Computed example of a mutant assay.
Amino acid sequence: MSDMSEADAAPARERRDTRNISATPNFDLLAGVSLRVSVEVGSTTMPLSELLSISEGSVIELDRAATELLDIYANGTLIAKGEIVSVDGRYGIKVAELVAPERGWAGVERRG
């Protein structure tokens, strides 16, 4: 029995710290992968009849207050929250907080 417990303990000591993915050597393989980054200002649900009746100048009320942070998604996965900024006459987003970085991917919301 002591041989088995020693064999199980050896690999545990050799395991890498996987909490920081950028510290692993294989991260370089993924560093050049492109992801679609999008920002969600808000959303709403409405009947099709109401949607069909909108025209130029119509206002659609969203479910988010103007002062709330916006959701930032990478390939449909919520990764951060931020606020709109103007950069050389174009819209940008300033990251205000990362979503659950200490919990890894377990607490990340996936948009369907």
Rank of each mutant, 00 (worst) to 15 (best):
L52N: 04
L35T: 10
V95D: 06
L51T: 05
L70P: 03
L30G: 07
F27K: 00
I84F: 06
A96M: 13
D3N: 05
I60E: 12
A31M: 12
A74T: 09
G82H: 02
V59R: 03
S49C: 11
L70G: 00
R90Y: 13
V59L: 08
F27N: 00
G82W: 06
V39Y: 08
S58G: 05
I84E: 12
Y73M: 12
P11A: 04
S38K: 10
S49P: 12
T67F: 10
N75H: 09
M46K: 04
T24M: 11
T44M: 09
A9E: 14
I60C: 07
E97P: 02
A31P: 04
N26E: 15
A65M: 13
I54K: 00
S43P: 03
G32V: 12
M46P: 05
L69E: 10
A74C: 06
I72P: 01
D63P: 06
L70C: 02
I21E: 11
E6H: 06
F27I: 08
L48I: 09
T44P: 04
E61P: 03
R13D: 14
G82A: 01
L52Y: 04
N26P: 09
R36K: 07
V59S: 03
R19D: 15
Y73H: 08
V37Q: 04
D63Q: 08
D28P: 07
P47Q: 12
S55I: 12
L48W: 03
D3M: 08
R90T: 12
A7H: 07
E68I: 05
R19W: 13
K81C: 02
A7S: 02
G42Y: 00
R13V: 15
S49K: 11
D8H: 10
L98W: 09
S34T: 12
G82E: 11
E40Q: 00
R13A: 12
S49G: 11
E83W: 05
G82K: 02
D63Y: 10
S38V: 13
R13S: 09
E83A: 08
R19T: 14
I54G: 00
A80W: 06
R64F: 07
E6S: 07
R13Q: 14
A23L: 14
P47N: 09
E68A: 01
V95Y: 03
S55C: 06
L98G: 01
R90N: 11
V33S: 05
L30F: 13
S55E: 10
S43V: 13
Y73L: 14
L78K: 00
L51G: 09
R13I: 15
G42K: 00
A12W: 13
V37K: 00
S86I: 15
A12R: 11
E14R: 08
R13W: 13
I79Q: 03
S22Q: 14
R15G: 04
